[in-house]
Nucleic acid binder design. Structure first.
Length: 682
DNA sequence: ATAGGGTTAG
């Protein structure tokens, strides 16, 4: 999707400054930037002073902090041996004490299955329990018909086959009341797992606490199930809490629990902690397996925005993957999905194609999710032919037939690639096959039709979507709004606005409000704020970008400046202006063409005032548009370049840095002064 | 046929 729909990844601050009909000049103020995470892979980040080992673990300290005193001396040094290979022997400074490990290298062993002739009957009984009404009364009534007093093994077998979680829970409680045998760790673990299916974290915590008070030991399986349940319920603080509780009891995580914990920290964006834990694991002899790899790779691969505004470290994922292969491990479908996604988001076409070649030649396993991930990767990279080949493969396959994800990916490819006729063919094909368009497919198709100015088809697709039950969301509205900004005739514009009216009437009212030159800034501000607050984060900046574009297309430049000001005020454009002693920089990478032009003009206006007041200026001025790494993205840098040319501004495109425009103070001041002298050209 | 970790979209 074009820059107008790029993701807003920043924290928005929506505090209201006093409302005044005159907007302040906002480039004179330093816009607060988001701190950007910097880390060096596999090297320690600037470390905190080590804690006193005597100290008891602090409340709320992270797991890696808790581990710090134990492993301070065993950490691999910077740039040491490959990460996945056996670590070189570290010097253990105190041989009188045994070297402690970060994790237990011995995985939990399962008790062997004991053959039981009653199994068939018990299975049948469990089936009966599963089929009865999901109420306490109905369940207990069937339960009274149990053939005989269940032994521990019988009970476990039944417990394992009960669905949904309510029944497993009732059965567990029933066993507890009957007091036939003591309930041990396994009983709790099985029940906890079942509760996890129902995302019943509160009940799980209750059971875990019951274990503690009844002195039933919690083991690695208990902890990993609790932690992953918290994770699935998005209770990340709870996941961390239980990881630390585990540590405090002195129980060492085994490799599975370790991966689960790493994933929690990774999902929380605690990159330093993950790396620290990772290093410590490797130092104590742990070899990440394909699952741990996926967890780590996902974290490294977080690419976010395709102009490196919040770039991840896809290179780290790649080297990890290569080491995984060197260790003789075979990647599976999930590992490969992770990697394919990373290469796509990072726009690493070469690596993506190499990976695909290797997948084919080495006959690595494929499943339909991996196929779909590869299709999305092709969409990210603009690999139309490759996507078509994959899609055909899927159609001819037995177990990987294209589903809604596959069709959506293809709609995305054709919609963003400008081959809207093929997108429409697919749309018809979907109707024939009875695969209903969802909101994402609808957005892709509408985007493509908008680009091709096929407004009547767009209206038809929108209507069909809504009839089929698609609920337009903020991103679809953003897409419609961007089409409004593309429309050349009032007639087309009204058609699209009529669609938008159904989805988001306030947005349409706002377009009318800003088009009216009589509307005061205070009124616009109030309504803008209210709309933005009620818009999902990732659609806020695109909304503002499109609104600015609409104003510019209608020659409402002053209003466009108002909107850019409001967008900046409410945190939609963090880091737009960056100042160092030597260089001031305008970063318009996340702006639409119109918004970028507006920002440039605003900046020049500000600088003119500074020149007039004869205040200090740095040596160098720069503006960056990024390169639009997406094959299909409209060149913001070209549009920006022609705008500079139009203004006759003395910025030159940098030769070694694409999408980077530079002006010296000398040239810029001269030009600004000439503009001050004859403002008519402005 | 007995309890734990990582995969897909606008």
């Amino acid at each position: 999707m074009a820059a107008t729909l790029s993701t807003a990844l920043d924290v928005h601050h929506l505090t209201i400054p006093q409302s005044d009909n005159k907007r302040p000049n906002f480039f004179t103020k330093t816009i607060k930037q988001n701190p950007r995470r910097k880390f060096t892979i596999f090297c320690k980040s600037p470390s905190k002073p080590p804690q006193n080992p005597q100290e008891s673990p602090k409340k709320n300290s992270s797991l890696s902090e808790l581990l710090q005193p134990l492993f301070e001396t065993t950490l691999p040094k910077k740039d040491q041996a490959p990460v996945l290979s056996k670590p070189s022997k570290s010097t253990w400074v105190n041989p009188s004490k045994p070297k402690r490990s970060v994790l237990s290298l011995q995985r939990h062993r399962r008790s062997p299955y004991a053959y039981n002739p009653k199994v068939r009957d018990l299975k049948l009984f469990a089936k009966k329990l599963n089929e009865c009404e999901n109420s306490e009364d109905a369940f207990l009534k069937v339960l009274e018909e149990i053939p005989q007093q269940p032994t521990r093994e019988d009970a476990l077998l039944i417990l394992n086959s009960l669905k949904p979680w309510q029944k497993a829970h009732l059965f567990f409680n029933w066993i507890k009341t009957k007091n036939l045998f003591p309930l041990d760790t396994i009983f709790y673990n099985v029940t906890i797992k079942s509760l996890r299916f129902g995302r019943q974290f509160e009940l799980i915590e209750e059971l875990a606490n019951e274990m503690v008070s009844n002195e039933i030991p919690l083991d690695n399986i208990t902890y990993s199930t609790i932690i992953t349940c918290a994770k699935r319920c998005n209770l990340f603080d709870k996941a961390v809490e239980w990881s630390e509780r585990m540590y405090k009891t002195g129980l060492m995580p085994d490799d599975i629990t370790y991966s689960a914990i790493l994933d929690v920290y990774a999902k929380l964006g605690k990159v330093e902690e993950v790396l620290s834990l990772y290093e410590r694991g490797v130092a104590s002899g742990w070899k990440p397996d394909p699952i741990a790899f996926s967890v780590l790779a996902k974290m490294f691969g977080e690419a976010g925005d395709y102009d490196g505004i919040r770039a991840g470290k896809p290179g780290l994922a790649r080297s990890l993957f290569n080491e995984l292969l060197e260790c003789g491990l075979t990647p599976n479908e999930k590992t490969l999905s992770c990697l394919a996604k990373i290469y796509g988001k990072a726009r690493w076409a070469k690596d993506a194609l190499l990976l695909w070649e290797e997948m084919k030649s080495r006959k690595w396993p494929m499943d339909f999710i991996l196929y779909n991930t590869l299709l999305n990767m092709c969409a990210d990279l603009g690999l139309v032919g490759e996507a078509e080949e994959l899609f055909m493969d899927m159609k001819q396959s037995e177990h990987c037939r294209p589903d809604i994800y596959s069709y959506t990916a293809m709609l995305n490819i054709y919609g963003s690639g400008g081959n809207v006729s093929k997108a429409m063919e697919l749309f018809e094909e979907m109707s024939e096959l009875g695969i209903e368009l969802n909101v994402m497919g609808s957005t892709c198709l509408i985007q493509g039709l908008g680009k091709a100015r096929r407004i009547d088809d767009l209206v038809r697709v929108f209507s069909v979507s809504v009839e089929q039950g698609v609920k337009p969301d903020d991103r679809l509205c953003g897409c419609l709004l961007s089409v409004v900004s593309l429309c050349e005739s009032k007639e087309d514009m009204d058609k699209v606005l009529t669609c938008l009216q159904q989805a988001n009437p306030r947005l349409v009212a706002f377009v009318k409000l800003i088009e009216n030159e009589e509307s005061s800034l205070a009124t616009v501000q109030e309504e803008f704020k209210s709309i933005i607050i009620n818009t999902k984060d990732d659609a806020r900046r695109p909304f503002c970008n499109c609104l600015i574009d609409i104003c510019r297309n209608k020659n409402l430049h002053e209003r466009a400046h108002d909107l850019l000001y409001l967008g900046t005020l409410y945190g939609l454009y963090p880091g737009l202006h960056n100042k160092t002693v030597d260089e001031w920089n305008l970063d318009v990478r996340s702006l639409s063409v119109g918004a970028a032009q507006t920002a440039l003009e605003e900046w020049m206006g500000t600088l003119a005032k500074i020149v007039k007041r004869e205040e200090a200026l740095p040596e160098l001025f720069s503006a960056q548009t990024g390169t639009g790494t997406h094959k299909f993205s409209q060149g913001l840098s070209n549009a920006f370049a022609s705008h500079l040319k139009e203004l006759a501004a003395p910025f030159r495109q940098s030769e070694n840095k694409a999408g980077y425009f530079v002006a010296t103070r000398e040239d810029l001041v001269l030009w600004l002064q000439s503009r001050i002298a004859s403002p008519a050209t402005a």
